[in-house]
């Protein structure tokens, strides 16, 4: 079986990426289906807002895209393939012996800016990248960090938000995949941070909440953030496992892998 390649166009269809991700997870028997499905429109909006050729070519003035929730690796690699940053053939090796495509994003893969998997790191690195770009005269080049709503329980996230606001890094945009479930249960039951947007607003950054499964809404929010003159936090309300009926909102799909029947059911269920 080969990983399905969707029609390449300027506009990447979420379900085309979902099919690619399902193929990758099914082949590899890997976990993290839920988190990969929830972040897809966010990733499409980000990579749709940047010059992917510069990312592919590692140009000094490329936009920085840092996937802080590193377990969203399959969706990241799939989206990058759909945008032409990495070849689809590379996806065949996901999660297999000798591959560079681990279950958490790795900078061993060309085009991946930073390896994550330990949570709470990516936003700090993004802050550093935003300062660095500004100091090199690329202050209009955006820096994106994708974080999970469970991840923001890590204190380093809030350290990074404080410094980003203090230095007024207006080219920095954090997108929060607010799928409301972390590793074993609902994030609200672990540490209730609702209403999340207000937590960030309290740090005086640009903040808004959007439907995280509307690429258009996320894209528009990115533009609003970049025009705000402040670092931004976009709370993207999402559904963990989005598009796969039996996995939607089910914490167990952080861990479970697809068998033949469920894979077929998942593919057939995508409209």
């Amino acid at each position: 079986m080969t990983i399905s390649a969707a029609t390449r166009s300027n506009r990447v269809e979420p379900n085309a990426v979902r099919r690619t991700v399902l193929d990758m997870l099914y082949r590899s028997k890997a976990s993290h289906l839920g988190t990969n499905m929830s972040e897809i429109e966010i990733l499409i909006a980000i990579f749709g807002a940047v010059d992917c050729i510069k990312i592919r070519d590692h140009a000094p003035d490329r936009s920085r895209v840092i996937i802080s929730k590193g377990h969203g690796a399959a969706a990241t690699y799939a989206t990058m393939a759909h945008y032409g940053i990495i070849p689809f053939a590379l996806l065949d090796s996901y999660h297999s012996n000798g591959s560079k495509l681990a279950g958490h994003v790795s900078h061993g893969v060309p085009g991946v800016e930073h390896s994550t998997g330990a949570l709470g790191h990516g936003l700090s690195v993004a802050v550093g990248a935003a300062i660095g770009l500004r100091s090199r005269g690329f202050s209009s080049v955006p820096v994106f960090a994708v974080c999970g709503d469970g991840e923001i329980q890590e204190g380093s996230i809030w350290e990074a938000v404080m410094l980003a606001r203090h230095l007024n890094l207006s080219n920095l945009v954090m997108l929060l995949d607010n799928n409301r479930i972390s590793s074993i249960t609902d994030t609200d039951k672990v540490i209730d941070l609702r209403p999340i947007e207000r937590r960030f607003a309290g740090f005086d950054v640009f903040s808004c909440t959007v439907d995280g499964h509307s690429t258009e809404a996320v894209s528009a929010a990115i533009q609003r953030s970049l025009a705000s003159g402040k670092p931004g936090v976009i709370v993207c309300d999402t559904i963990k496992g989005k598009g796969v009926a039996f996995a939607e909102g089910q914490p167990i799909w952080h861990y479970r892998s697809l068998n033949d029947d469920l894979y077929r059911q998942a593919i057939d269920g995508l409209i």
Binding site: P60, R64, E113, H114, G120, H121, G122, L123, S124, V125, A126, V127, G128, A129, A130, I131, G132, L133, S135, R136, G155, S156, E159, A160, M162, L163, H166
Partner: peptide
């Protein structure tokens, strides 16, 4: 500031930008 974990990540991000 008094936020060393973030400082180290920021340093890595600066290095990534060629500094």
């Amino acid at each position: 500031g008094v936020a060393e974990a973030n400082m180290m990540g920021v340093a890595a991000g600066l290095a990534m930008s060629g500094l």
